[in-house]
Computed example of a mutant assay.
Amino acid sequence: MKPTIVFDLDGTLALGDGPISAYARAIATRIGDDSFGERATVALIAHAAGETSYRDGYHAVATLAAEDRVSAEIVSAAYDDSRALLGTAGATVSPPEGLSGFLHGIVEHASLVLATNAPDAGVTALLEEWAIIDLFDAMHFQVGKPAGLVPILTAALARGRVLSVGDIHEFDLAPAAELGADTALVGPAAARLEVPATMRGRTIADIYERISGWATSAPHTAS
């Protein structure tokens, strides 16, 4: 039985602040405050530099909105606005360098699963554009991590070894580690957080070789 690799989307397979900036702009438009977008940009720069405790860019923007007492309804609607733009000029993202070749190289050794808290709006078109959509055995949207990731991981573990890859420890790695799966932490938090992880890198491109090694021999060394 092939092992399973469960990939997060935003900040893992799709890089760039395009959708997050669109989220901030949508909030600014809905509340009529241009300064909100400017402050969000500053927060995103600090997060990318590893200087904040935000889980990710979305958390940074949502935190600013909460501090400004923006209603949950406006924040939710602005998020939907931004996700509808995914992959367009209004919310650009890019894959980690060499992603397509990497996934095509490991698909014969591992089952690939996408699990994201994001809705599917724009995602399938994006993965088609990147010529990787056919490599995934399953794609799960609006998962509701961390709790919603548990049944996905449990089902995969019933079939064999599992590696969970993501940029938010609480959402992508902690549920996996608790169930006995291996973990890979990527993104700004990889260097900052002192949490156990089987492997880690600034982007997934930094650990292609380690993931490939895991898929073929499953080393269990923590970094």
Results as ranks from 00 to 15, higher is better:
E170V: 14
Q142P: 09
A189K: 12
T183L: 05
A91T: 12
L127Y: 12
L127V: 03
I106L: 10
S35R: 15
I132N: 08
I204M: 06
L157E: 03
E97N: 02
V195R: 10
D17M: 04
V107I: 00
I27F: 07
I133C: 07
P96V: 03
R202H: 11
P188M: 05
P219F: 04
P146F: 11
T29Q: 13
T92F: 13
A156S: 07
H109E: 11
V6W: 04
T216V: 15
L112E: 03
G11S: 04
S94G: 04
P219Q: 05
A110H: 08
L185Q: 03
A197G: 05
L135Q: 04
E178W: 08
I168K: 07
L112S: 10
F7C: 05
V61T: 07
S217E: 11
R161L: 13
T63H: 01
E128I: 07
V61H: 10
E170Q: 13
A190H: 03
T221C: 01
D206L: 11
A121V: 03
I152P: 03
D182C: 13
V143D: 02
A121H: 13
L163T: 11
P146K: 02
L112C: 15
L127P: 02
A72C: 05
A184S: 08
R30L: 08
D120M: 05
M199E: 00
F7I: 01
D182R: 14
A14Q: 08
D167I: 09
R210T: 14
V6Q: 05
E178T: 13
A46P: 06
S223A: 11
S212G: 14
L44N: 09
D8E: 01
R159Q: 15
R39W: 09
F136T: 00
D68E: 15
L103F: 03
A176N: 03
T41W: 03
S21G: 02
T116Y: 06
K2F: 05
A138T: 11
D68F: 11
A131G: 12
A65F: 03
S111C: 06
T221M: 10
G187Y: 02
T216Y: 08
T88R: 00
V186H: 01
G98D: 02
F36Y: 04
P219W: 05
E51S: 09
R210S: 13
V150Y: 04
P95K: 00
L9K: 12
A48Y: 10
A78T: 00
P188Q: 08
A84W: 05
S53D: 12
F36E: 09
A190K: 04
M139Y: 02
A43P: 05
I204A: 12
L99C: 10
D206K: 00
G37E: 03
F171P: 09
A147L: 13
A66H: 09
A156H: 07
R210N: 11
T12D: 09
E38N: 08
E67H: 01
A125K: 14
A62R: 11
L126I: 06
G101L: 01
V6C: 12
L15G: 06
F7L: 08
R69W: 08
M1D: 12
R83N: 04
D8A: 10
P151S: 02
T116E: 10
T12F: 07
L193P: 11
P19G: 10
A62S: 15
T4W: 10
D81Y: 01
F7P: 01
D80Y: 00
W130V: 11
A65Y: 00
I31V: 10
A138Q: 07
V186F: 09
L179C: 01
A131N: 13
E51P: 00
A118E: 01
L13A: 09
V123A: 06
